[in-house]
C-alpha cells in the first residue's frame, strides 16, 4: 500500500523581494514498510519537505501540490485540525540535535510518559500510571537502552547525544507511528553510535513494518540502510529509484558527482589521490539560476538546460536532466 504520495510539491516563501521557490515541484512516494532515503546538501530543501509533511511550516510558506495523499486521503483538502489529527496519529519525527529537542528541565521519565498515549493502555484510571511506567521501560528496552532506571531518572544534559537520540526514538515510536521521519538523526553522533541507530531503525522497520524517511546530506551514510533513494539538489528532485540501482547506475550528473566524491564508493581510487569535485557551490535562494539549478556547476550543461527538465522515467528509475548519463539496461 502506498502511504505517502506527493506529486509536484512546491514550497514558496513570501519575502520582500517577492516569492522565492525553495522547493520546486518535488514528487515523493513512500510505500508501507519501506525505508526511503532523502539526500541533498544543506539548503537543498530536505527539512522543508519534512516539515511540509508533518504540517509545521509557518504561515509565510505557500504550499502547492498536484497531489498530497496520505493513505489515499488528500491532506491539503482537509481542514487544518483534521489534517493535524491524522498526522499526529500516524507520523512521528526526530531531529538532528536530540539534546536540544528534549526539555532540559524535565526528567526523561516525565517526557517519555507524556509521549505515551493513554488511550491504548489497559486497565482503568488508577492502574494507568503503573502501565505507563511499564510501557516506558519497554520502550527504552526496544531502543536498546538496558539501564532503564538510570536513564529514566536523568535529565537530558546528563546523557550523551547518542542516548538522547535513542530516547527521542523511544518517544517517537510510543504511539506506534506508521511513518518515522528522521531528519539527519545521526549527524551529531559518533560513527559507532550512528551505525547502532541505523540498525535500530532498520529493525523497527522489519519488526513493526514502520516506514522510515531517512534524511541526510551524506549519501554513503544512508545508502546501506535504505531501499529507495531520492536525491535533491537546490529544491529540485534530480533522481530517484531503488538505492542499489541508483548507486550502480546514476543517470543524473549530480548523483554521479555525489557518488564519485565519496572515497568509499571508489574502490580503485588510491589513498591521497584527488576526489571528484564539482566546481562551485550550491546557490542561495536569492540567486537561483533559471532552468536546471545545477546548470552553472554541471559538466554536461548545454543551452537547453536553461529550461527546467521534467521528471522522466526508465522503468522504476526517475531522473530530471536533459542529458542524462548513459543508460544501460539492467541485467
Amino acid at each position: 500500500m502506498v502511504l505517502l504520495d506527493i506529486r509536484n510539491l512546491t514550497l514558496e516563501l513570501e519575502t520582500s523581494q517577492g516569492l522565492i521557490r525553495a522547493v520546486d515541484r518535488v514528487s515523493l512516494s513512500l510505500r508501507e514498510g519501506e525505508i526511503r532515503g532523502l539526500v541533498g546538501e544543506s539548503g537543498s530543501g530536505k527539512s522543508l519537505i519534512a516539515k511540509a509533511i508533518v504540517a509545521v511550516l509557518n504561515q509565510r510558506w505557500r504550499i502547492k501540490a498536484d497531489r498530497f495523499h496520505w493513505r489515499g486521503e488528500d491532506l491539503l483538502q482537509l481542514p487544518f485540525d483534521q489534517q493535524r489529527r491524522i498526522i499526529g496519529r500516524d507520523i512521528a519525527m526526530i531531529y538532528q540535535e536530540p539534546s536540544k529537542c528534549l526539555d532540559p528541565t524535565a526528567t526523561i521519565a516525565e517526557q517519555l510518559h507524556e509521549s505515551i498515549p493513554t488511550d491504548g493502555l489497559p486497565g482503568n484510571w488508577w492502574t494507568k500510571g503503573r502501565h505507563k511506567r511499564k510501557k516506558a521501560i519497554a520502550l527504552l528496552h526496544k531502543v536498546g537502552i538496558k539501564e532503564h532506571q538510570a536513564v529514566l531518572d536523568s535529565y537530558p544534559y546528563q546523557l550523551s547525544e547518542g542516548v538522547c537520540q535513542k530516547v527521542m526514538i523511544a518517544m517517537a515510536i510510543a504511539k506506534s507511528p506508521k511513518l518515522l521521519i528522521a531528519d539527519e538523526p545521526t549527524t551529531a553522533l559518533e560513527a559507532s553510535t550512528q551505525a547502532q541507530l541505523f540498525r535500530l531503525m532498520g529493525s523497527l522497520n522489519q519488526l513493526k513494518g514502520m516506514s522510515v524517511l531517512l534524511i541526510s546530506n551524506e549519501l554513503d551514510s544512508i545508502a546501506r540502510y535504505t531501499h529507495r533513494l531520492s536525491v535533491l539538489y537546490c529544491g529540485q528532485l534530480v533522481e530517484s529509484g531503488d538505492t542499489a540501482r541508483v548507486l550502480a547506475q546514476p543517470l543524473h550528473p549530480y548523483t554521479d558527482a555525489l557518488i564519485k566524491s565519496v572515497p568509499e564508493f571508489q574502490p580503485d581510487l588510491q589513498p591521497k589521490k584527488p576526489l571528484f569535485a564539482l566546481p562551485g557551490s550550491i546557490p542561495t535562494l536569492q540567486h537561483l539560476p533559471v532552468g536546471c539549478r545545477l546548470g552553472p556547476r554541471c559538466p554536461n550543461a548545454r543551452k537547453e538546460c536553461v529550461h527546467t527538465p521534467v521528471l522522466e522515467r526508465k522503468q522504476h528509475h526517475y531522473f530530471s536532466c536533459h542529458f542524462p548519463l548513459q543508460y544501460k539496461e539492467p541485467r
Partner: peptide, 9 residues
C-alpha cells in the same frame, strides 16, 4: 557538504 568537502580535500 560532500561536494564542498571534496573540493577542500
Amino acid at each position: 557538504d560532500p561536494t564542498v568537502r571534496a573540493q577542500i580535500v
